[in-house]
Amino acid sequence: MNVMTASADPRIDIAPLLARIAGLLGDLRSDHAGETGAVMIYRGILAGSADPAIRAFATEHLATEAGHLRLLEAMLAPGQRSILLPIWRVAGFLTGWLPAIAGPRAVYATIEAVETFVDHHYEEQIVKLGRTGEEGALRRLLETCQGEEVHHRDEAAAALGTAPRGALLRAWAFVVGSGSAAAVAAARRI
């Protein structure tokens, strides 16, 4: 379900915000890198799975993530983006492809882990922003993206159901969450 709203205006002038809000460029750079990785996760899932339900899930979510990426690309000049994007593309693809070849539960556990991290990542940024002017516009855009990521997480969690998650699935989810945190830390700086 792609619910990106027209109120999420990609023409936000971030220049005055960058001068006023410490760390904002790093935050937005990490968001852009993360959405780049997310697009590649879903492409990896599509490359690795023939399961019709997984392919439908991935296709729908890929469209949403591609929309998020377009919004961030409209705000950030190429020189403001992470130089590590080639690494995020490969890592994202493998993060989708490996679980796709392992099966649906691995895919859903991956998405649940990634989107849990992303929810918290966006929240850390949202609370720093005011509600009016360009700050408010950026806040609303990030809230929209966050809401859609939470929707992805909740869909994946529902698909996983209440069946116990084995040690391997829990370990993989830990690796995915930790890897996401490390990627954000690197993208904020580089």
Rank of each mutant, 00 (worst) to 15 (best):
M1C: 09
T5G: 13
S7D: 09
S7L: 12
A8V: 12
A8N: 09
D9F: 00
I12A: 02
D13C: 03
D13P: 06
I14L: 13
A15E: 15
P16M: 00
L18Q: 06
L18H: 06
R20C: 00
R20D: 14
R20T: 11
G23F: 12
G23A: 07
L24D: 02
L24T: 06
L24M: 10
L28G: 09
S30L: 01
S30N: 05
D31N: 14
H32P: 00
A33Y: 07
T36H: 11
G37I: 10
A38T: 06
V39K: 09
M40Y: 11
M40V: 01
I41L: 15
G44Q: 06
I45L: 10
I45G: 04
S49P: 00
A50N: 10
A53G: 08
R55S: 13
A56M: 05
A58I: 09
T59N: 00
T59I: 00
E60Q: 12
E60H: 12
H61R: 11
H61D: 11
L62D: 08
A63N: 01
E65D: 07
A66H: 05
A66F: 06
H68G: 05
R70A: 15
L71P: 00
M75L: 11
L76H: 04
A77T: 07
A77Y: 09
P78F: 11
Q80W: 02
I83H: 08
L84N: 04
L85I: 14
P86K: 00
W88F: 15
F93P: 04
F93E: 02
F93T: 00
G96H: 07
G96P: 06
G96L: 11
L98P: 01
P99E: 02
R105M: 11
R105C: 01
V107I: 11
Y108F: 14
A109I: 12
E112M: 14
E112G: 07
A113L: 05
E115F: 05
T116N: 05
T116C: 07
T116D: 10
V118D: 03
H121M: 02
Y122N: 05
Q125L: 14
Q125C: 13
Q125S: 13
V127H: 13
K128V: 09
L129P: 00
L129F: 07
G130E: 03
R131T: 14
T132S: 14
G133I: 06
E134H: 13
E134Y: 04
E135W: 01
G136D: 10
G136K: 10
A137C: 08
E143A: 09
C145S: 09
E149H: 10
V150C: 09
V150T: 11
V150F: 08
H151T: 06
H152A: 03
H152R: 03
H152T: 01
R153T: 09
D154S: 09
E155R: 12
E155T: 01
E155F: 03
A156C: 06
A157H: 14
A158E: 15
A159H: 11
G161S: 05
G161E: 07
G161D: 11
A163G: 13
L169D: 00
A171W: 13
A171R: 12
A171H: 02
W172Q: 06
A173T: 07
V175Y: 14
V176A: 14
G177T: 08
S178D: 02
S178N: 04
S180D: 07
A182V: 15
A185I: 05
A185H: 11
R188V: 00
R189A: 11
